[in-house]
Each structure stands twice: as structure tokens, then as C-alpha cells.
Design a protein around this nucleic acid. Sequence first.
DNA 1: AGGACATGCTAAAACCATTTAGCACGCTGC
DNA 2: GCAGCGTGCTAAATGGTTTTAGCATGTCCT
Lengths: 340, 340
Amino acid sequence: MASKRATLADVARLAGLSPTAASMILNGRPDTRLSQDAHDRVNAAAEALGYRPNVAARGLRTDKTLTIGFISDLVATTRFASGLITGALAAAEEAGHVVLVVETGGDPARESEAIGAVLDRQVDGIIFATMRARELFVPDIPAGTTAVMLNATNAKHPTSVLPDELAGGARAVELLVEAGHREGIALLGQNDDVEKDLFRSATVARRVAGIRGAMAGHGLEFIAEESIWLWEPEGGYQAMRSLLDRGVVPRALVCMNDRIAFGAYQALSEAGLAIPDDVSIVSFDNDELAAYLRPGLTTVALPHEAMGRRAVELLLAGGVAGETLIPMPVVTRASIRAAG
Amino acid sequence: MASKRATLADVARLAGLSPTAASMILNGRPDTRLSQDAHDRVNAAAEALGYRPNVAARGLRTDKTLTIGFISDLVATTRFASGLITGALAAAEEAGHVVLVVETGGDPARESEAIGAVLDRQVDGIIFATMRARELFVPDIPAGTTAVMLNATNAKHPTSVLPDELAGGARAVELLVEAGHREGIALLGQNDDVEKDLFRSATVARRVAGIRGAMAGHGLEFIAEESIWLWEPEGGYQAMRSLLDRGVVPRALVCMNDRIAFGAYQALSEAGLAIPDDVSIVSFDNDELAAYLRPGLTTVALPHEAMGRRAVELLLAGGVAGETLIPMPVVTRASIRAAG
DNA sequence: AGGACATGCTAAAACCATTTAGCACGCTGC
DNA sequence: GCAGCGTGCTAAATGGTTTTAGCATGTCCT
């Protein structure tokens, strides 16, 4: 099969025309004056030979390769944020592009190396993605190469795509309020006093601001706030236990992420408290976990896939300075008691 | 910054030599007779200009691009098997290669398209990966392009990398036996009678064979076997409930995957049964979940990352016909009661 | 009749690196 | 004095495409 790829010259020969003509016709050059007959012959020849242009050769000439570089710290690795890749791949495919994925583990040396590697391959642009939204250091890249920051920000490269955490944070509180909760609401994971020295991702601050803004807007106050060092189930479990041990039994919980919520589920279950009858829970991220819990966890989703898509759209549009905020959809399951 | 990339010609000019000489020196051609002085001058010039070869141009001449195509159905998408990508990326990077990732969603038309797209970019070889191990249909690819099947098999492309499910299945049973379990062992997820019409991934059969082989080897029999339609937590929960409702209380559980085990945890917890004191659980996959459960789930891991690595190693070695089986490591946590 | 212009096409350069073939020079050996 | 050979290097072709510049013809206008 296909012993040798057909080249443009082959097509031209078969059509009885010059490679110049064949190239112009196949690329649909607008202002050309080639006859309809020539068009037909070239198209037929290309079809017959199964001709596909050699991207490397074309890229050499045009500096366009229909290829995007996707450089990330741990996105593919951690499976958590892999939706970013998924979205980027899908959008790229729709635009006829292909994606070169490089994972650096966050190591600056490998980051430089990665940029070199994708630049060597003449990519049309680079997306820098991080697993957790943050300011990302980016080595110099040649002027003229457009870059977009995905789930990240960088002073030199102003085009960035982020989740709309401010609105998302507020939305979580609204969900509780709409279900009739006005008292006994606790916050798990965040406590400004304790957290101010901790490094959290850049967007956590916005999430918190959204939450506090909505609480204040409704004239509500948290009955308790528990800080959690590692936002993992174990931490959520301990925090919930500690709350219960101190005798505070909330009627509703805002958890900073789904894994914390999972831990809370476990502690609540041990204490014989039912979700959502005794306590409602709302959370963030829409981790895989959220669907597995019983009852299903209602959560404000990190729109990873939409973000990935948007990043390549912006990249192909040449980059639009400024932050693009992607809405965080709420995924309604069964962890919030019915209104009333 | 870097207004224009330096070309080989620039390096040669600065070194006062011909491009030919510069090329030979930079590529470390063995049999050349260029002087030490020439070597030094070229290397210095390349360094000074920050020269990096243009991969497209080189590929045009040599047909080698240091790029690997990774075509998968849902690997990046589902985050479950994303370790396959991670491993492949890491191994590729170590070998100085870069990976073009394309996701097809399992759609044959997009699969063909994807192959075309990566071939257009002159990849050195293609890895076909599937999320769940299975026989994969692969459109024709030109002879001479090496292909390796990752977590998949294909008659035309005999090089494949698979988890060693037979040994892994047996190992799970051994874990229980080593902890002193000989009676009251139930199997959750698989029941040959019911399952024989269901389509499961190609490797499930081996996992089951491993399990049954080890049971028989120790002269043991399952106290019960529950088939589960969808291997998700909900299914595991239902199956465990059904067992309990029928009055069978196992002392140990072999679950076909971690999500089923998660469901079993929930049902057991509701029934007031403690893990591992009342019932031990062993499972498969080492899903993210397994670490989050309380107590932590002991599981026989799907070695996705190692498989991904191995696939690119085989690819770069030119493909080695036959199946390469990657051992499934056991991840010991706390769901099996201590021996005695 | 002859210049201007439109029409339909092509030759050749350019992109950048690799590779084949071979040139020029100096030395050895006879 | 010269054939033969080793040494150190280079000219030019090659790979596949795009693009610039321009060549023939034929038509129209005055």
C-alpha cells in the first residue's frame, strides 16, 4: 500500500500542468486566472493520487504548520485538569490543527527545553497551561509567536483564559440561599485569618471573594470557618470531625472543593448525619468524585474543557489581550435539600 | 529578543566554513576529516548564535522528525487512562522526541483523519492507544511507518503493550490468601454465566482467568459471584446490597475494579459492617478514588504510566513483534485485614 | 498597423538542512 | 618527476512546497 507519497509535482505532471498551477489551484488562490479546465484536471489528479501536501515542506516556506504547542506543568499527568487538554484537542481538530503536547513537571529547565522543542517544529503558537491557576514563569519566546496562558497568567503574555471564580463562588452561596438556608452555614477549607500565609492558586482568592460577597449580599454570616492545610479528603474529614467534636452541627456546608466535601461526607456519615436532610453540601470543581458520592454532590464546576477550547480559539485568532473568564456551570445533584 | 532564528548558513558564515562542514560537525558525523580547529569554530559559532536546527527542514531531507504521533480514542478525554499519555510524554522527552496527540473519540472517520494529519507531519512512528484494552481497528498506514498498539491489539500491527492481567488477577487472590482468608470470599463484578454475552475489554478475560486460576490453585471457591452491568459505584452498591439482602455476608471481597469497590464500601457502611475488620476488600486499577476511601483501598494497579513509557521505547526501537506485558503492581493500603 | 491590456500559464528562486561527489593541496615512494 | 594517496574542505543537488516575476498569445482600440 501507498509505496510512496504523491508529491505536488506528481499531481502537476498527471494534470499536464506546472507545479505552480497545481499549487495555486489546490490552495484556492483567489486572484488567479487559471481556467476552469485546469482546475478540474488538477483536482482530479490530486484525488486520483490521494495527494496530501507535505506539511514540513509547506511550513518551511510559509512558516505555518497548522500545529499548536501545548506546554503544561502537570496537566496531563494529574488527570485532574486533563479536560484542559481535551478541550484544546477538540478545538484544534475542528480548526484543522494538531497539538504538540509537552509536559514539564513545572521544572523551569524543562520548560525552556520544551519551548525550544516546539519552536524547532515551527508551531503556529503556544498555549501555556497549569494544573492549578497561577502566575506562571515563562522563558523568553521569539516575538511574533503568539502565546496564550491557560489557567494561568503572565505579565509578558496578557492573553489568558481563566474560570470565572468570582461569579462561581457567589453562585455556590446562591444555591444554598435558594434552598432556604439562612443560618448554620459553615465554610470548609478556607479561613482568611489562617490562610493568608498559605500559597493557594491565584484564583482561590476570587472564589473566596465571590463566596463572601454573596454571603454579605444576603446579610448572612458563617457559623464557622475551618481552614484545611491540604485540600484532600483526609483534610475534609478532620475538619468536619473537629467541627462536630466542638458541638457545632451546621445545617449547610460550603466546601472549597469536592475532595474536601468527600471527607465531610465520611465524617457526617460516621456521625449519623444524613445528607441533605440534616446538612446540605455545596462544593467546587466537579471532580470525578462528585458523581460517585451518595447522594450525588452538587458542585460548581471548573469548566476545564471549555477553557481548553477557548484557549485555542484565542490563539488562532492571534491572541486577544486580557483575561477571558469562562463561566463555571453548576452541576446539580442531590446534596442540597429541596427549597422550603 | 531573537529577531530571526539563526540558520546553519549563519553559523557556517560566522565560523568561516561551508554549511557542509558546519552540518557535519554539529551532527557529530564520525568519519569526517575536519580539523579540531574547525570543530571548535563551528561549535563556538553555533553557541554564539543560539543556533537550533529547523526540524522541518531537516525532516524534509532525512524523513526523521523526532516526533511521535499518539492517536487515542478517549485517553486524554476520560482522565482515567491519562497515565498512558503521561508515560509516553516522559519517555519521549527523555529520547529527545516530542509527541503529537490526537484524540478521535473512537470515531473511525476521525481516526483516518487523525492518521492523515500526523502522517502529513512526517512522524517517526505512531502509537495507537485505547482507554480500555481492546482490539482496535486501524486504517491503513503506509508500510515503513512503525506502529505500536498501546492497551490494544491489532492483527496487522503485532507490536502491542498490555497490562499483565493474568498475573495481576492471581495476585489479588494471593493477597487475600496471605491475609488468612480461605472462606467467605465473594466476587463482585464478574459472573461468567451472566457475563458471557457482555462486551468487556479484551483484558478482562485474562484478569478473570488469573483470579479463577489462583482460587483453584488454593482449592478455594467463591461464596458468591455478582455480575454488574456498569462497573461504576452505583453498580457496586447495588450488588453488595443484593448480597446482603439475601443474607450472605462475605468475609472478603474481590472487586473487578475500584469503582465497584467504592460502591461496596457505601453499602457495607450502611449495613454497619467495618472494613477490614468485618470484611476485607481487594480490587483493581488503582483509580484516583482508591486513595481517598477510608480505609484506603488495597488494589492491583493498572500500570498506565509504565505502559506509556514502554510503548515509546518499543516504537523508537523500531517495534518488537508480539505482546509486551507490563506487571501490575499491588498498592497496599488498609482494606485487607492483617494476616492471622 | 501597432501599442495596451487581458488571459492563462510557467521558470526559477526561496525556505533550511543533509549528503554526494569531488576539488586542491601536500606528502610519500620509486 | 610523477603516480598515488591521505587530508581538509566545498559546490551543488536534494527534499516538497509557495511565490515572485514574467513569458506567450490573443483581443481591443485608435
